[in-house]
Simulated assay, not measured.
Amino acid sequence: MSNTILNKVNKALEEIRPFLISDGGNVELIEVKDHIVKVKLTGACNGCFVNQSTLKLGIEATIKKYAPEITEVVNISA
């Protein structure tokens, strides 16, 4: 995966991270491969019952805003 896509993904995560931290959680980028981003939700986000909503509506939507070529965001800690 190109550095450009990786930079876009990192920029998107930096935008969403303060919201996660304010709720006691965070997100860690694991891998970007074949237009799929793998992340690990940590802290309060890991066990939260709405983490799928956070993942799809928050993290994935923000990443796709910066990098529309990304097709999916997957939480590997699920």
Rank of each mutant, 00 (worst) to 15 (best):
L6W: 08
I59N: 00
C48G: 11
L55W: 04
G25W: 00
T71R: 10
A44M: 11
V32K: 03
P68C: 09
H35V: 11
P18S: 07
E60F: 09
Q52W: 09
K33C: 09
Y66V: 02
N51W: 07
Y66F: 15
V9S: 06
K11E: 15
L13T: 02
G43K: 06
T4L: 11
T71E: 09
E15F: 05
K8L: 10
V39Q: 01
I21T: 08
F19E: 01
M1F: 11
I21H: 03
L29E: 04
I21R: 01
E28T: 05
N46K: 13
T42H: 10
A61F: 12
H35Y: 14
A67R: 11
L29A: 03
A12Q: 05
T62N: 07
T62S: 11
K64T: 04
M1D: 12
T71N: 14
T71Y: 07
L57G: 14
I70Q: 04
I21Y: 02
N7P: 11
S2I: 01
K11Y: 08
T54W: 06
V50C: 12
N26C: 01
L41V: 01
V9W: 03
K38C: 13
K33F: 13
N51P: 05
A61V: 02
K33Q: 11
N3H: 12
S2N: 15
K11C: 10
E69H: 15
T42I: 06
A67K: 11
A78W: 15
H35S: 12
I30F: 11
K11W: 07
K8N: 15
T62C: 05
E28Y: 08
I16F: 00
L55F: 12
V32L: 08
V39P: 04
N75W: 07
N51Q: 12
V73I: 09
P18T: 02
A44Y: 04
L13H: 02
M1A: 13
K64L: 11
L20C: 05
E31H: 10
A61R: 14
A67V: 04
E14K: 00
S77F: 09
A67F: 05
K8H: 14
E31M: 13
S77G: 14
V73C: 10
E60V: 04
D34Q: 12
I59W: 02
G25V: 00
R17C: 03
